[in-house]
Amino acid sequence: MIAVEQLTKEFADLQRGSVVALDGATFQVQPGEVFGLLGPNGAGKTTCLRILSTVLKPTSGRAVVAGYDVAEHPERVRNNIGFMSSNTGLYDRMTAWELVEYYGRLYGMPEGPLQERLETIFETLQMNDFRDLLSSKMSTGMKQKVSIARTIVHDPPVLIFDEPTSGLDVLVARAVLKTIESLKEQGKCIIFSTHIMREVERLCDRVAIIHRGRILDMGGLTELSQRHQQPDMEELFFHLIDRHDSESDLIAATP
């Protein structure tokens, strides 16, 4: 469903010259699987997910999502994914129902099935209390539910979550994670980025640890802890990052 090969993205930066935000990332994600991208802030997670959602174009490398190349058929890719992040805002002057309906229409859903789908989603996400409330009047939890509804309104086979729980209180975060779990049960192909270990442990089948644009290691949770003899996920994470930093320092120091 998602296949990424040697994906690289460079940015021009005034302070530091050219910056490699993503450096040769390669991975695959299967349907019914939750793949986690774990890394500190600025590691390249958002860049990677933005390339997968066709908002950014890769400098080099290839990414195929739901059977379409992101560089060649960006519109087809966008039709087959749902994307949600802490950055994806809602229109203040639209109600919950209007907003989800609007996106449903943009995804080209016919009017009849769209209304049915909306009813189902509003029912399952328990959003009927505030279906006619303007976004500007909603609480963070309500907004997050609307965001999820928007992401899944067209029932896409691939879902991309970029730090969906950042900035949320525990209750709302838990609801978001629960939704992702149920989406996984429906056989969706899910890619999920975070810097919170617990979320990875709870949700992910496989995880890639990413730091300074590079994937340091990748695999199932048990597989990773066996390979590095670190039973604790958090320790494993710091172990990998430390090792990488000292290696690159060493390279930089060698003349």
Partner: peptide, 14 residues
């Protein structure tokens, strides 16, 4: 500024 641009960019509209 309001962060809705990214939301719009990931819908199928070109």
């Amino acid at each position: 500024e309001r962060g809705t641009m990214e939301t719009l960019l990931i819908c199928p509209a070109t």
